[in-house]
Design a protein around this nucleic acid. Sequence first.
DNA 1: TAAAATTCTTAAGATTATCTTAAGGCAGCC
DNA 2: GGCTGCCTTAAGATAATCTTAAGAATTTTA
Lengths: 232, 232
Amino acid sequence: MAANILVVDDEQSIADLIEVYLKNENYDVYKFYNGWDALQCIENQNIDLAILDVMLPDIDGFSVCQKIRERHNFPIIMLTAKDEEIDKITGLTLGADDYVTKPFQPLELVARVKAQLRRFTRYNSPEPLREEKVIAFAGLVLNKDTHECTLNEKPLSLTPTEFSILWVLASNRGRVVSSEELFREVWGDKYYTNSNNTVMVHIRHLREKMGDNAEHPKYIKTVWGVGYKIEK
Amino acid sequence: MAANILVVDDEQSIADLIEVYLKNENYDVYKFYNGWDALQCIENQNIDLAILDVMLPDIDGFSVCQKIRERHNFPIIMLTAKDEEIDKITGLTLGADDYVTKPFQPLELVARVKAQLRRFTRYNSPEPLREEKVIAFAGLVLNKDTHECTLNEKPLSLTPTEFSILWVLASNRGRVVSSEELFREVWGDKYYTNSNNTVMVHIRHLREKMGDNAEHPKYIKTVWGVGYKIEK
DNA sequence: TAAAATTCTTAAGATTATCTTAAGGCAGCC
DNA sequence: GGCTGCCTTAAGATAATCTTAAGAATTTTA
């Protein structure tokens, strides 16, 4: 599910914007403001999809696109200004898989990224896209089927609720999950009441079992006024 | 919240089972035992989500899925036998949003239905889409959901109030926002009293965290006698 | 240039959110 | 029924944030 996405745009604010939206969907983002740096990255990282602005300071996006296609096969989405009618066609014929005109709705771009990844993985891997059954990172291993959990090889015996909370946090790691969202995910929408500290208490138990404390947590961090978060 | 859900499965007992669980969650269920009847229903009813078995007596679920996608955009969850041919399962990802293998836990299916409906309404509700969730410019990135904020890639830890103030200024950048307006936006109209320097103090904290000073501010500028402003 | 107005800075007390602890309730098992 | 383990609730403790106020600094006005 997690994929490495290359973003190339010389307008920093736009690249930043795209980055946030993609990270919010748990993609790993490699961001560059010019073409050559991006091309170099491609050789070192295992990129799954590229988003390229047509207008770049050094070499234009079409050339970057072409160069990528000489050696790689992943989907490419081009960003073009609205009035570059002819360029669109050019871009597409040069190996781009989709294009989006500026200004764009970030969510639309995200949707297209997903679509391309779906299409690409369908043609390139026999494995179906499925929901994760195991999450492993930073010494923590969670198995959704068995509810088993180990931290640095040592088993943690978590209660069902604790496991569910940790699972939600772990599968959303890198972003903040509000207490309310956590509650809805674990207990279900209809049980939600906005005055109880149940989640908090379970977080406390989790931290205890994980050897964490609230002041300097290694795993579950408190984001004041917003919720909880596990770093990526 | 109540949604119309289409259930298509030739095994009557399974379709019935799903129906019971969905109705228990207050969903309206449209239940069919074959593909064609289901397709016909879709044109007449305003369906919000479909659950399709792959094995159907007349046309297979995969084709039904395709046909739905020709005209509709709602989420589709596929039901597949556990030992289904891999390429078939792979094919399912064409247009389907999720799938569940038989035998399944009814509650898991219900959970996935909820998840898909949540996801779908998030991306399709016309209004919230207009409100930006992320603002990015000049190296500053603000995420309204998580209250995360980075300045030149480095995270700033802002308090809730600080974040809100910065958000208002950033989303109005290029124009001056008066202290009073700022207060009303952040705290709400009813708390406003025309003598307090609360806003000022928070601005001070913001500037501190952003490495700004009042005399030569890079970000939050004071417009004497009027208010504060972030340049476009 | 002096006075007035506005903004800045600082720190301390008030407030609010979160944390911690412990007790009671409920379900499953012997 | 009694035991066990888990979940929830509540209440006090702690920590983070917010507000206030007062004096300093700055800009404007006269």
